[in-house]
Design a binder for these strands. Structure first.
Length: 568
DNA sequence: GCCGTTTTCGGCCCGACTGTTTTCAGTCG
């Protein structure tokens, strides 16, 4: 059984225990264990076979023996039995807003309702009104929750949150009734997909801020409105929350509402050990406020370096900050050039020269051209004649713009058998080659892994393009042993692409830290099909930062001379 | 279910909002 399957089961046990009304801390032990496993990079089979699981904090006797059973036999008797005691539909009901374990169990026990459809029917027939602590209002809220679940259970791509939040921020700031106003939550942590928008405001007139926020024309529905906190649903179905605090409380609140939940819990735990109480309003030692003017001061109290929001996922940032070992994260300004660009030779819409001029305007000093290869007929893949013509044009443009360097590349399909497009004579003519899988996605994992390993063992390959092929919120990546692929890339000196297209962001940032520690090199690529898509670069930077990457981990931070030396 | 430089038992992060109540339970982040 793989690690991700174990994680899934541990989380589900947590949910089932919550439904059964077990001690909350018991289910939390399962969630915590699942979270820990996600961060641990070591192979779970090894941990189990070498009996080392029990020495990790959070894994006691019970969890160790259960996980061992899961990993070695693929099954867990405790889990199987537990599942039998709770109807399957109850777990999915937990995802309806306003419904928690207690209400779900009350409804199930009194009415026998155990699917969302039955619940809807029960509400429509006023069946819930007789239950204790249920009223018409409760019932209506549940119906609303079901409706929202069906309509808006989806998440949103980062750029949508970016656009909406900046408009809301501008609107609130310009009102003149707030002192500070910032984005918090997953948006500030630059998560690749978002559930909601969190805004934090400091103001002496919180009630006015609430009225202002809830009356913005983006707001479709107000789902909560109190003295310091309001929640709304925006026109596109996205939730947005706002919190108002006093200006002196702002730094503590900003940290609190930036999260992640896991980061906060871990830091509060540390605080408590030092006798410090921590909440959104301050840090308190013996009820005495420890004054902090900004987030840097807060981390300082714990002897830590400032932790950039992108790193606050409890992936080891607290320990690193204590030891003053946080990475100096890569920035937009570090980038010196881009690779992976399509022109009007294949499915891009700009000429090479237009792309070059735009790159120069952005301050870049080199550009790697990579149109599709001949197998990609759907995308206008280049024939041998096209390539010859394109190389001649590039030579002319390199003479014309002598301060700039255009590199000749291709995005070659990795064919189902793992070979690249074109024969050796053609492959030799490129300065670099990106290999990407664009077809036969449905292979089983072993076959897909072997296919890609064959490609990255090809001496002409330079960069592995979008390594899992995922499309965020619409397509899972193909099944591939990404850890093994990373190892082979390192062995063969293949650079791994961080595809900056906000619908891809592939490689996933969760793999980067470990890969970097093993010596992997990356390139952040816009995969641009137009001039405008060079803007995607900043989304790639966002996730590279989440993956703990520094300038030196990323080859397109090299200057023009260095990159020429790297590839030619 | 986990954990321990006060503890092998009794804690486990903390507070806002809603709705059903008249002091609090449930849910959420």
């Amino acid at each position: 059984m793989t690690k991700s399957e174990v994680i899934k089961i541990l989380n589900e046990i947590g949910l089932l225990l919550e439904l059964k009304g077990e001690n909350f801390f018991k289910s939390r032990a399962y969630y915590d264990a699942a979270n820990k496993l996600e961060v641990i990079q070591e192979d779970i089979q090894t941990l189990v076979s070498e009996n080392r699981l029990g020495s990790i904090k959070g894994f006691g006797k019970a969890l160790t023996s259960k996980i061992t059973e899961l990993v070695t036999t693929g099954e867990l008797e405790y889990y199987t039995k537990l599942k039998e005691t709770v109807p399957k539909g109850l777990v999915s009901m937990l995802r309806i807003s306003g419904l928690g374990p207690k209400k779900i169990m009350t409804i199930y026990k009194s009415l026998g309702v155990n699917t969302i459809e039955e619940l809807k029917e029960a509400c429509e027939n006023n069946k819930l009104l007789d239950l204790p602590r249920f009223s018409k209002k409760t019932q209506d809220k549940i119906l609303e929750g079901i409706k929202n679940y069906n309509e808006y259970s989806e998440k949103f791509h980062y750029p949508i949150g970016e656009v909406l939040s900046s408009e809301l921020l501008k609107y609130i700031r310009e009102s003149g009734i707030v002192q500070r106003c910032e984005v918090a939550g997953s948006l500030r942590r630059k998560k690749e997909v978002l559930k909601d928008i969190d805004l934090l405001v400091s103001s002496d007139e919180p009630d006015k801020v609430m009225d202002l926020f809830t009356s913005h024309y983006y707001v479709k529905e107000i789902t909560g409105k109190g003295e310091t906190k309001s929640s709304v649903v925006l026109q596109n179905g996205m939730n947005a929350d706002i919190r108002v605090v006093s200006d002196s409380q702002f730094p503590y609140a900003l940290h609190h509402f930036t999260g992640s939940k896991e980061h906060n819990t871990a830091l509060r735990h540390l605080a408590k050990k030092q006798g410090i109480k921590m909440n959104e309003y301050g840090l308190f030692k013996d009820d005495e406020l420890i004054v902090c003017h900004n987030e840097k001061d807060i981390f300082n109290v714990f002897g830590m370096e400032f932790i950039p929001p992108e790193l606050r996922e409890n992936y080891g940032e607290l320990e690193a900050a204590e030891n003053k070992e946080l990475p100096v994260l890569v920035t937009n300004e570090d980038v010196r050039g881009v690779f992976h660009t399509h022109t009007n030779y294949s499915d891009g819409n700009a000429t090479i020269e237009q792309l070059v001029i735009d790159c120069m305007n952005r301050g870049y000093s080199y550009l790697g051209i990579t149109d599709h290869s001949k197998t990609a007929i759907y995308a206008g893949g280049l024939t041998e004649e096209d390539i010859k013509r394109q190389h001649e044009e590039i030579d002319l443009l390199n003479e014309k713009y002598h301060d700039f360097k255009i590199l000749k590349g291709i995005e070659s399909d990795i064919l189902p058998d793992g070979s690249l497009d074109y024969d050796e004579r053609i492959l030799q003519s490129f300065d670099f080659i990106i290999g990407s899988v664009h077809s036969a996605f449905k292979m089983e994992q072993k076959k897909m892994t072997d296919r890609v390993i064959k490609a990255i063992s090809n001496p002409y390959m330079s960069i592995l393009g979008h390594p899992t092929g995922r499309l965020l919120l619409s397509r899972e990546g193909y099944k591939i042993d990404i850890e093994q692929i990373i190892e082979v890339c390192i062995e063969n000196g293949i650079v791994i692409e961080i595809n900056a297209n906000p619908y891809r962001l592939d490689l996933d940032w969760r793999h980067m830290k470990n890969a970097k520690e093993k010596g992997c090199k990356f390139v952040i690529s816009p995969d641009a099909h137009s001039i405008k898509e060079f803007d995607y670069m900043r989304y790639g930077i966002n996730v590279a930062r989440k993956g703990w990457l520094e300038k030196s981990d990323i080859i397109n931070t090299l200057n023009k001379d260095e990159i020429v030396k790297y590839f030619l």
